[in-house]
Design a protein around this nucleic acid. Sequence first.
DNA 1: TACGGTTATGTCGCAAGGTGACATCGGCAC
DNA 2: GTGCCGATGTCACCTTGCGACATAACCGTA
Lengths: 191, 191
Amino acid sequence: MARWQPDARGRLEAAAFELFRERGFEQTTVADIAARAGLDKRTFYRLFGDKREALFSGNGHLEELLVRSVTETDAGPFEAVVAAFRLVAEEIFADRLELVRARQTIIESSPELQERELRKTGSLVAAVTAALRARGLDETTATLATESGATVFRVAYARWVAPDSDAPLSDLIAEVAAELRAITSAPTETP
Amino acid sequence: MARWQPDARGRLEAAAFELFRERGFEQTTVADIAARAGLDKRTFYRLFGDKREALFSGNGHLEELLVRSVTETDAGPFEAVVAAFRLVAEEIFADRLELVRARQTIIESSPELQERELRKTGSLVAAVTAALRARGLDETTATLATESGATVFRVAYARWVAPDSDAPLSDLIAEVAAELRAITSAPTETP
DNA sequence: TACGGTTATGTCGCAAGGTGACATCGGCAC
DNA sequence: GTGCCGATGTCACCTTGCGACATAACCGTA
């Protein structure tokens, strides 16, 4: 997979991450990234569709894990999705807090990157929904379960990434899921 | 608000909408849009931050309506959000099905526009969340209620826009909200 | 009505994103 | 070695988006 020098793709990702941290996303040129990786701009565009994509390569792995988890359980749809996110939290995020925070800082600094992240999570959600449907659930139920699960994850994730947090992500997910149940369960009428 | 010719902004929006329908988003150049509106490319960029923005101008109005609705009720957070979306459905969407469908077709044809839409709804959500917090709710509850409400809206909206739908959007929202309650209310264990 | 000031618009130039076409070079099979 | 193939580089190009400056239309006012 690597001929001239090993792992061109990996080098580009690393270079991009460094430069985005050093100068910010918008102040970094694709040519800069390529140069730091010892490659040409054109090569970057052959490996990544986009300048932004260099930051979003782990998503394939994530999706695979989520889909597998949701597929291999018999739990109710919402529970299955929450469990899948907790698995991901432990397998992928747990021991990478600092890295995740740095990445998050970069993303928050650029509207373009926020948009891209939204789309990425959107396609994760779509994949998980498809997996639920493959278990025989109807479209609406599957979508609702996945989206709610994703919302729970996002809220928990935001708490986890916050500078003063210390609870494990997986625990936070469980807590937030419980809160969501409380809010939606009974129509509260306050006169 | 209009000096040389009336409503430059409106003319640009209309031109963009037309051209996006005729040739597609990517095949349309900002210069094309400006030309059809009888203006210059540079003028377009003074009125819109982006080529994409030409499609997302109604959002201000929407946000205002949502925030007002959520602010002026005493209902529980989730109920308040759902009610706000139903109001928007009636006030803004109800009699514009064809327009909305055309717009949706355009958006679905371009990843860039999908990202933008995601961000737009994201900022709507943020505004509504802020409104709920102003009512004294804590961050997590407010976020969860808003995000869940938005999910309900999205699912209902998707059904409504689908080519074979006929039920009013507002009714669909109510139905989907009920389904969400069913899914999250009781932890289903299927051994 | 002539004036100056304000404001929208036009013109010009340019950096950067993104892409197609073609050249080149390293490795591999034979 | 020869020759092929795939990864990379080079070049040219279009579009987005923006800064700087020029221009023209409208406004109030004397």
